[in-house]
């Protein structure tokens, strides 16, 4: 629905688009994510691969969106664009009012550190630091510094149910616990948007369900906007909205709020 509204809109006038997009989103007021005609292609061994081909998307604050698709569908590239980790060839990404494509490297870094929280498939924890230190890591890059970093990290660990494991190294934790630590690390900076890239890809189904329940709780209780990438339909079922991608395009976009409840 938001798609039709913004289609064909000029690059200029982001504010106007934002206003219209929010007007069209029934549940929440401001769109958290707004992409317009996003394209990215790579040349791979002489041929050109269109990783993203004109993706226009609006996600409201407080939504829990799952993006599904087979590998090569462009879902990872979309995630990297949202995360400010990769730049589009054309089109724009506006997140929480910031035009991510036009940010300078140092502002982009601040954007990643303050607006976003990342959760990765392989957890990406620092092996020689304990859970608490891992959770505190993003705060190290805050300017000005965060004086009560340890208390915040402890609070984040409490929120994921690992309040008593702060002094354990990652190797002393199970896979599910490691992913919880990673989620706590993503939460510690109070992000507006959580980006999760196959967060259950390395976990068994029972642990996957626990992690997904945790994400749903964070979404419901704290109103955290979540965009999750997965190829697992069962995982996608936890989301309130499922976007399906293929060949760099969005081929379906359906709400699922009732079932998940």
């Amino acid at each position: 629905m938001g798609k039709q509204v913004v289609q064909g809109a000029a690059r200029a006038g982001a504010q106007a688009r934002l206003a219209r997009a929010s007007a069209m989103t029934p549940t929440k007021t401001l769109p958290m994510i707004q992409t317009v005609d996003l394209s990215k292609s790579y040349s791979l061994g002489g041929s050109t691969v269109h990783a993203l081909d004109g993706v226009t998307l609006a996600v409201a604050a407080g939504e829990f969106v799952a993006v599904i698709g087979s590998s090569g569908s462009g879902k990872s590239t979309l995630m990297n664009m949202l995360g400010g980790l990769d730049q589009p060839d054309s089109g724009s990404v506006i997140i929480d009012g910031k035009n991510v494509g036009s940010l300078k490297p140092r502002d982009l870094a601040a954007y990643r550190g303050e607006t976003l929280g990342f959760v990765f498939q392989q957890f990406q924890l620092m092996p020689r630091r304990n859970a608490l230190a891992n959770v505190m890591l993003p705060l190290q890059y805050r300017r000005p510094g965060v004086p009560d970093g340890e208390a915040r990290a402890q609070a984040a660990l409490d929120a994921v149910g690992l309040g008593d494991r702060g002094h354990h190294k990652p190797t002393e934790l199970s896979g599910g616990q490691q992913q919880r630590v990673a989620i706590a690390r993503a939460l510690v900076g109070s992000p507006s948007l959580l980006l999760a890239d196959e967060p259950t890809g390395a976990l068994d189904s029972r642990t996957s369900a626990e992690i997904m329940d945790l994400l749903v709780t964070l979404n419901r209780n704290d109103g955290l906007t979540i965009v999750l990438i997965t190829h697992d339909l069962e995982v996608a079922d936890y989301a309130s909205r499922v976007i399906t991608m293929s060949d760099g395009k969005i081929i379906s976009d359906e709400p699922r709020s009732v079932e998940a409840a």
Binding site: R106, A109, R112, G113, E114, F120, Q124, M126, Y141, R142
Partner: peptide, 16 residues
């Protein structure tokens, strides 16, 4: 390299 990528995604500037 992966640690550097992680730190960047967590908000590390180039200067950091």
């Amino acid at each position: 390299t992966r640690e550097i990528g992680l730190r960047m995604s967590l908000g590390a500037r180039r200067s950091d």
